[in-house]
Design a protein around this nucleic acid. Structure first.
Length: 441
RNA sequence: GCGGAUGUGGCGAAGCGGCCUAACGCACCUGACUGUGACUCAGGCAUUCGAGGGUUCGAAACCCUUCAUCCGCCCCA
């Protein structure tokens, strides 16, 4: 066993897993671009109060899950537990409200940290791919982001998910509702768990999210937000639902959904997706409207909407459903020098191909042909280049197409034209062909 | 943060106080086959049982501590 091991709840992404991660990241980036988003990056740590003020004192994230430490200058620093707060801080700090196009549409991708007890699909360092739109309040926008998530999942091949949707209302609605909840729960305080007693004071909305008392009549019978929504909030949400119907997005309304972050207002959602055997790995993504957050960071009063995917959850779900191609990792060609004495020529060929832009790798271990062919298969190489005494003496390369198993002896100076020709035919085939294999590309 | 289970080579797994210098299967390496991937056959591949300590004449097995993983709760991505 290794003397040095990973910190709990973290993991190494080795080649295959990294290739899968990159694949998802690419699909989502392309989707973001399709919807008019631009890439931004913010630091993975911020001053602690960036999160306490936005994510909220009553949230579990701030209460018990943050990686917070003092830096050498005595500042309280926190590894970001989510992406939105940093984006909003950056938006205000860089005065994007004045210098950028409104709405400000940005996507980001990277690690976030939460100190939780690890489980399957749950880590302390996870990666989120998120989208934020700052500057617009319009049901069409809420729906645009949900559509973006919807289309992204379809592009990844994920199908059996559902958007759980709720409206937690504007300030007025929520204040009315909080008041009603307080009045309702006050006489029942003793029936609630310890956590909920704290929630009662800090944010009674949280009580609805409690699973400990989830079955208890008290919570079941609690007033519903829908009754306390202002006309505006109600109409807005109805419009959102109507549009989702129109676009045939799979969603259901879940009035107990309040989200674990305090900054949400209005439309909120989580994406639930079960494994092939009904396993529940938690939400694969979530988000919502946060109309007060920019103001909270001392920016102008600006509405906003955002969402994020959990990369680890996507990775897990896609793996369970076998949605990854087997050959995400591939080598175009692999040089097989037969015997030490052919190493020099083989190495020359390999570098020659590389300098002409054709990916190539070479076997350095003076192994048997059998062993090298196994490597060719394992690395999904398109071509095996067999280089032995005959080839070296005649300045040729024995090129074996690993797919068709056809083998030709090619003069050194014909190598590049040969591969160029191969590529041209390949893309020509690609353009004209409508077979299943090519359609998806 | 709470409750439960588990930890033996790259992987799966037997062994549950001495015959363990750790079975078996897969994978891997070498050769039979001086240059074509299969099959077959022969051989190789854990001084060591997550780590540290203790009990014992003797420990992978028993005890303690610790680390990690998995499941449930909580929460979410």
């Amino acid at each position: 066993m290794a003397k040095y091991s990973l910190p709990r709840g973290t993991k190494d992404y080795l080649k295959e897993e990294c290739a899968r991660y990159d694949y998802i990241n690419n699909v989502l980036s392309e989707m973001a671009t399709l919807y008019g988003f631009e890439h931004i990056q913010t630091p993975i740590f911020e001053h602690t109060d960036v999160f306490t003020r936005s994510v909220g004192e009553s949230s579990d994230i701030v209460n018990k899950e943050m990686y917070t430490f003092l830096d050498k200058g005595g500042r309280s620093i926190t590894l970001r537990p989510e992406g939105t707060a940093g984006v909003c801080r950056a938006y205000v700090e860089n005065k994007c409200y004045a210098t950028c196009e409104i709405p400000f549409k940005a996507y980001y991708s990277g690690p976030v940290f939460r100190y939780e007890r690890p489980q399957a699909g749950r880590y302390r360092q996870i990666h989120q791919f998120g989208f934020e739109v700052i500057g617009v309040k319009n049901p069409y926008l809420d729906v645009e982001i949900i559509l973006l998530a919807h289309q992204s999942l379809l592009a990844l091949g994920i199908t059996n998910y559902v958007f759980k949707l709720n409206c937690i209302g504007d300030d007025e609605s929520r204040n009315n509702y909080k008041q009603a909840l307080k009045e309702y729960f006050e006489p029942h305080l003793n029936e609630l768990c310890e956590d909920c007693k704290v929630r009662f004071i800090k944010n009674p909305l949280r009580i609805l999210d409690c699973k400990v008392d989830g079955d208890k009549e008290v919570i079941k019978n609690a007033p519903r937000i829908s009754k306390y929504l202002t006309e505006d909030s109600k109409n807005y949400f109805v419009k959102v639902c109507m549009l989702l119907d129109k676009y045939q997005v799979p969603y259901e309304i879940d009035q107990s959904l309040v989200r674990g972050l305090d900054y949400y207002t209005g439309t909120v959602f989580e994406i639930a997706c079960l494994g092939p055997n009904g396993e529940n790995f938690g939400a694969i993504g979530g988000g919502g409207r946060y109309d007060n957050l920019i103001k909270e960071f001392d920016g102008p009063d600006t509405p906003a909407f955002g969402m994020a995917f959990g990369m680890e959850r996507l990775l897990l779900i896609m793996d369970k459903y076998n949605l990854f191609n087997a050959d995400l990792i591939r080598t175009f060609s692999y040089c097989m020098p037969i015997g030490e004495e052919n190493m020099e020529y083989a190495s020359f060929i390999c570098n020659y191909l590389r300098s002409n832009g054709f990916p190539c790798d070479i076997d350095y271990r003076n192994r048997s042909i059998k062993a090298m062919f196994k490597t060719v298969d394992k690395r999904h190489a398109q071509f095996a280049l067999i280089i032995g005494d005959d080839e070296r003496k005649n300045n040729t390369v024995n090129v074996k197409n690993n797919e068709t198993k056809e083998q030709v002896n090619i003069k050194f100076e014909q190598l590049i034209p040969f591969f160029e020709n191969y590529f041209n035919n390949f893309s020509k085939h690609h353009d004209e062909c409508h077979c299943d294999e090519c359609k998806g590309e």
